[in-house]
Amino acid sequence: MPVPQVTVPEGPEGGLRKVSPEQLLRADPGVPEVVKGSLGDCPGRRCRLRTPVYVDLTGDGKPELVLAFDDTGRTLMWAYTASGGSVRRVLDYAGPQQMTATAIGRDLVVDESGEGRKSTVRFRWNGRVLAPVPVG
């Protein structure tokens, strides 16, 4: 479902890089209010929104947008894709605050550590969303 009130300019000068991450998160009904209320500190030293990451995870030649927000004791992460001038969320994930994400090829690999444990979740485009796949 497209994020309401957010349009993505198309063409060589368009794409998700032209969309404000803060505006996108404020408009997305699936983003918690605590996050939306904290975006007033962005950009700036008190901003808890990590630097946006642009990487082609769908294989369409256009980068998706991956956003992570450090909430109290956890990190919330979303990935968005653009098509036909609209943007939609294709991943919604929460993990410990020490969580990191890396793109390996077209996969998004999330490493979590904390409380003496470490786990890895790998997400891959299934034609509709980024879905977890077995690691190994």
Rank of each mutant, 00 (worst) to 15 (best):
D71S: 15
G116K: 03
V3T: 06
Y93E: 10
C47V: 08
V121F: 02
D71I: 04
L49C: 08
V110G: 06
E13I: 07
D111S: 14
W78A: 14
P63Q: 03
E64G: 13
L16S: 09
G114C: 04
D92I: 09
V66H: 13
T58Y: 01
F123L: 07
G116Y: 11
R48T: 04
R117W: 13
G136C: 10
D71Y: 15
L16F: 03
V31P: 01
E33N: 02
Q97L: 11
V133G: 06
E33S: 03
T51R: 15
V6C: 09
L130K: 10
D92H: 06
V3K: 08
Q5P: 10
R26H: 05
K18E: 13
D71Q: 15
S38F: 00
G59Q: 13
V133R: 13
S86N: 12
T7D: 11
E115R: 15
E22I: 09
L67R: 09
L91Y: 11
Q97D: 12
R106A: 07
P52A: 05
T120D: 04
D111I: 05
K18S: 11
V121N: 10
R88D: 08
D60V: 00
D70E: 14
V133P: 04
G73V: 15
R124V: 03
V53C: 02
N126P: 07
L67E: 12
T120H: 01
G40C: 04
E33P: 03
P132H: 03
P132M: 06
E64H: 00
E33I: 01
V19D: 04
R88W: 02
E13P: 05
P96H: 14
G127D: 02
D70I: 14
G61E: 11
A79G: 11
T120A: 03
F123W: 12
D41V: 09
L57R: 09
D60L: 00
C47G: 01
L49N: 02
L49W: 08
G11H: 00
A79Q: 09
G105N: 01
D71C: 15
V55H: 14
Y93G: 06
A94G: 04
D60A: 04
S113Q: 13
C47S: 05
G15P: 01
R45I: 07
P43C: 10
Q5H: 14
K118S: 11
E33F: 07
G11Q: 06
V109T: 08
